[in-house]
Design a protein around this nucleic acid. Structure first.
Lengths: 143, 143
DNA sequence: ATGCGTGCAAATACTTTGCATGCCC
DNA sequence: GGGCATGCAAAGTATTTGCACGCAT
């Protein structure tokens, strides 16, 4: 049993909601994709597999997963919106290259700590964050 | 003369584009608003002042200002999208309360440094970032 | 004068919603 | 069996685009 299923089950139970076949399938697909995905591409893939799944259901489920902090939304800046599984609820941040569009995932304790300290100072109880750094990656700087 | 006008002029010149009346008015309005604004609210206000200004022009100009890194986009999570003037190009980050929707702006050198170090490590040339922290503010924790 | 930028409206894209039916608990 | 969730289509929003005309350079 995967962590994401457990967490989502827990969330749904709390909200007195049901873990339906569709919700289960969407979560499975997210786990299998591993990295970031787009709503549209996601729906196409599911349909290619011959499964019936309504757009609306995907939007509804994604909203719940966001609300449950199990996935996060990434605005790649060029009009594309990605979603990504928050593996084991460990926050990782994103570095996005404006040239080639590549997305690097980082996890840095100093950043983590600095943010926690600032929140403590303000008495703010942080639940979740989104940090995206845009610029030019090593490879693209050489072009 | 305001910094934002200068910077935008510089950007437009680089791109061989013109500093039109509309662009100037949009920039003025942004400077006067100071804090974050929404496209829709923004257009209404300009229209209330009796000025003629097309939606499309606002979208086009906002896109350029984003591209020039002079304003930044904030996704408040509840479906609302804000834009905000990047004062003097100093990066400040946002703390957003999920209960009351309040947005706090922070500027913290430790966060700044930790991010710079991580980028240096990766050889990534950062131009811009967006950091949003979501949670519950001090006041709302007491309710 | 030249041609980029604007305004307008239509087109497109994205997301939500109402309602009848199906399926989880 | 009761009622929440789904699928479908239609309605909302948000954003982009084509084209004729106006204005900045």
């Amino acid at each position: 049993m995967n962590d994401l299923h457990d967490k989502f089950t827990e969330y749904l139970t709390q909200q007195d909601q049901r873990y339906t076949t569709q919700r289960r399938e969407i979560v499975d697909a997210i786990i299998n994709k591993k990295d970031h995905f787009e709503i549209d591409e996601f729906i196409s893939e599911v349909h290619l597999q011959g499964k019936r799944l309504a757009r609306a259901t995907v939007y509804r489920t994604v909203k719940q997963l966001l609300d449950a902090k199990l996935i996060q939304k990434i605005d790649a800046g060029n009009g594309r919106i990605y979603y990504e599984y928050n593996e084991a609820l460990q926050h990782h941040d994103h570095i996005i290259c404006n040239q080639c569009g590549k997305i690097l995932e980082i996890k840095n304790n100093h950043i983590e700590k600095a943010i926690k300290l600032e929140c403590n100072k303000l008495g703010f109880q942080a639940e979740y964050r989104s940090l995206h750094i845009y610029g030019t990656c090593k490879e693209c700087q050489n072009n």
